[in-house]
Design a protein around this nucleic acid. Structure first.
Lengths: 195, 195
DNA sequence: GTGAATTGCGCAATTA
DNA sequence: GTAATTGCGCAATTCA
């Protein structure tokens, strides 16, 4: 009855969690850097087309501070305002390429992806579609979890009510049985006295 | 025992939903337009500084298509690739300003907020902080809901087990009682026959 | 009217 | 190599 209704929702809810939550959802301390793209919107073309590399701001600070609570208070304007001048790519601060084995490629000639190329736009568009799809999926999953929690709460109340009824019925029967037991003992005594 | 543990989590969960979910969380069909800011990142300075107005892409299409399922399939490249040329601000496509009453202001001189102004950066920074705070809150709320659902599920299993035990105990007592009843009837018959 | 909060979106980096 | 996830900033909207 109500089990079938609940179980259907639970089935849907379980199916929305195919496997492990990727261990990143619970531990968001992956190598988080999140370049301030908005800040770079005025000069990203220059950066990307000239240096052909990815320049990030102070990322380690954010990672360290996201470990603590209230991470939204940790972003100071210093990090954002200085994103233009300092914080050069520290992967290139020391050029060891003449001493490295040829298996290690130089990070400069990485891909040379122009933001004007059709390939870039194609990749971006595909990623945008994937992002929308993923977020839609996440929204549905959250809604299912909420509905599941509510239904489990209702079912809990019903089960506790049923436990109360069963307990009361059990007490009644136990009382009756104890009365019968006393009555039986008296009758037994009467029998023995009558012999 | 286990009730206190569960109720604490539920308390936390309930407190994370202070009031109505603003009726927008459940019905996300508000006047959604979401200008493709990322697409305009290469020329937003020009647009914003020249026309001093906000130019949006085809927003009504998205609203209409988000009503249906799979909204992530509805964004075609046509809307995005033509964001530069077409889709001018259709509020200005016909200039009726000479015939309008002075109560209707022209949308051109709306606020003239330059992206280079310190006030703009201050507003952006404050909003960024608010966004991080809000998303952190949402993440915590989702986690609490998941934990709550799991704890309710565990509690449900325990309650169902208890119901099984009580039912079995009840059946046993009923059976005993019925036996006593038969025994009492036989004894009563024996009494009458012995008289 | 104003500032905070919420929301949808695109971008970039990372992951699977 | 591609699709999926995730954090972030931006802009529009809503809330208080």
């Amino acid at each position: 009855m109500s089990d079938s209704r609940v179980s259907s929702v639970i089935q849907e809810w379980v199916s929305s969690y195919p496997g492990q939550p990727h261990s990143q959802s619970l531990n968001p301390v992956s190598s988080n850097q999140a370049a301030p793209s908005g800040q770079m919107s005025q000069m990203d073309m220059i950066i990307y087309n000239q240096s052909q590399g990815i320049i990030r701001g102070g990322a380690d600070d954010r990672v360290a501070e996201q470990m603590m609570g209230l991470p939204y208070l940790s972003y100071n304007t210093s990090c954002l305002n200085n994103s233009n001048s300092g914080s050069a790519n520290h992967h290139q601060s020391h050029d060891f390429s003449p001493f490295l084995l040829p298996t290690v490629r130089a990070p400069v000639t990485k891909r040379s992806i122009s933001k004007d190329s059709a390939e870039y736009r194609m990749r971006r568009e595909r990623n945008n579609i994937a992002v929308r799809k993923s977020r839609d999926k996440a929204r549905r999953r959250i809604l299912l979890t909420q509905q599941r929690a509510l239904q489990l709460q209702e079912e809990n109340q019903k089960l506790q009510m049923k436990i109360g009824q069963l307990t009361q019925e059990l007490d009644t029967l136990k009382h009756i049985l104890s009365q019968r037991h006393l009555q039986g003992a008296e009758e037994g005594a009467a029998h023995e006295s009558s012999i």
